[in-house]
Design a protein around this nucleic acid. Structure first.
Lengths: 213, 213
DNA sequence: CCTTGTGAAGGCCTTCACAGCG
DNA sequence: CGCTGTGAAGGCCTTCACAAGG
């Protein structure tokens, strides 16, 4: 089995979402062509990405939506829900806590905030707690992932506390590059990173025409 | 001048943020080594990225923080503020409307929501308006970018309305792949995309060891 | 002597054409 | 006959070693 480009993994997540939309729409069968159009990549790319992991289609026919969906969840480790806590219960944290799309892949198991004024709130029956409760909660409730939704200056400190508590992965919404041990996965969901592509548009035209991609 | 990898642009945004942190900390001089460490890339990478655009340092010495910061803002087209409107004033939209970090690069010029109950709100003195006001506002207030903070099902429709109104770029917070004319820049700030890297962690171990990057 | 700037080499990812198979 | 699956080719991006220059 060949080396898997990490970019392929990102695309698999997109394919999965498309398959779930198709399934919800009652579609049974699809093709690399259709997936490619929806994901805005080439059909070659779709087939290659899938081929890193196995053969899930039928030649001459295509893919069965339900089958491919299940296989992708299996590959991505999303065939079970991951225990997640949210640190920082400002508006972003609260919006995420109530976001229905989370529930299919994450199980929200804890909410933490440094501000005592937030400790009267609860989400899905789980109360917001102080940071001092974090290590115990992570251990006892089998929390595997932490979502950081605090201001940038505090993000590294929160990350340290999460790592210290034994967390395995971090979803970081703060606009900073976090330092964590390399066995801890970090995903930056930095909204200022949005600048990177918009900057392509804002880019001095003199350079834009030199660009690739 | 050689072709510029689009990935380099993303990193330039990171370098810029680091430089602004350094400047705020009163640091005058830096090096490719220091920038590399902060950005978690190699010093080779930093120098190469900068070299696509010019020579901004002094050999044997390094870079002047203030100079490089100004040059990067110039390159990225961030030496002026871009007119931005937010569509969808739920908690995400409201949090972003109040986010202080936006003001250095974006000027918030309009807020829109389909729900009349939101129309009594205002942010920075600008009222939330109905979608029917969008085209006129975009034209009259010179709004160049639109930020989409609506539920996924409505995102494409909102994108269409933004494009129709003459917007030039879109920051998309909804978890869908938007279809827009190719002269409109789109940045997906999809929080479910966070799954892509966390999936690397969740990935079946059998494949994780095959991975590259 | 030290750090930047850069052509060249190497490697990863995408693209492609076609073999494989129902 | 149609669409998938894949080795090979090509291209882009990163890495590297060293030249350039204060």
């Amino acid at each position: 089995m060949a080396k898997v480009p990490s970019a392929a993994i990102s695309r698999l997540v997109t394919y999965l979402r498309i398959l779930e939309d198709l399934e919800a729409a009652g579609v049974n069968r699809t093709s690399s062509e259709q997936l490619a159009e929806e994901a805005q990549v080439t059909a070659f790319q779709v087939r290659k990405d899938l081929s890193y992991f196995g053969s899930y289609g039928t030649r001459g026919v295509g893919y069965t939506v339900q089958v491919l969906r299940r296989e992708l969840r299996q590959i991505l480790g999303l065939n079970r829900r991951w225990g997640l806590c949210i640190v920082g219960m400002g508006r972003i944290g609260q919006a995420l806590a109530d976001y229905p799309g989370f529930s299919s892949t994450f199980e929200l198991k804890g909410f933490f905030d440094i501000d005592p004024a937030k400790h009267h709130l609860s989400f899905g029956g789980i109360p917001v707690q102080g940071m001092e409760e974090l290590p115990r909660a992570v251990a006892e409730r089998h929390i595997e992932l932490g979502l950081i939704a605090v201001p940038g200056q505090m993000a590294q400190s929160v990350a340290d506390q999460l790592v210290e508590s034994g967390i395995k992965g971090i979803l970081n919404f703060a606009p900073v590059v976090l330092e964590v041990p390399k066995d801890v996965a970090v995903e930056n969901v930095d909204f200022l990173a949005g600048l990177s592509r918009l900057s392509f548009f804002a880019l001095n035209p003199k350079w834009r025409e030199e660009m690739v991609g």
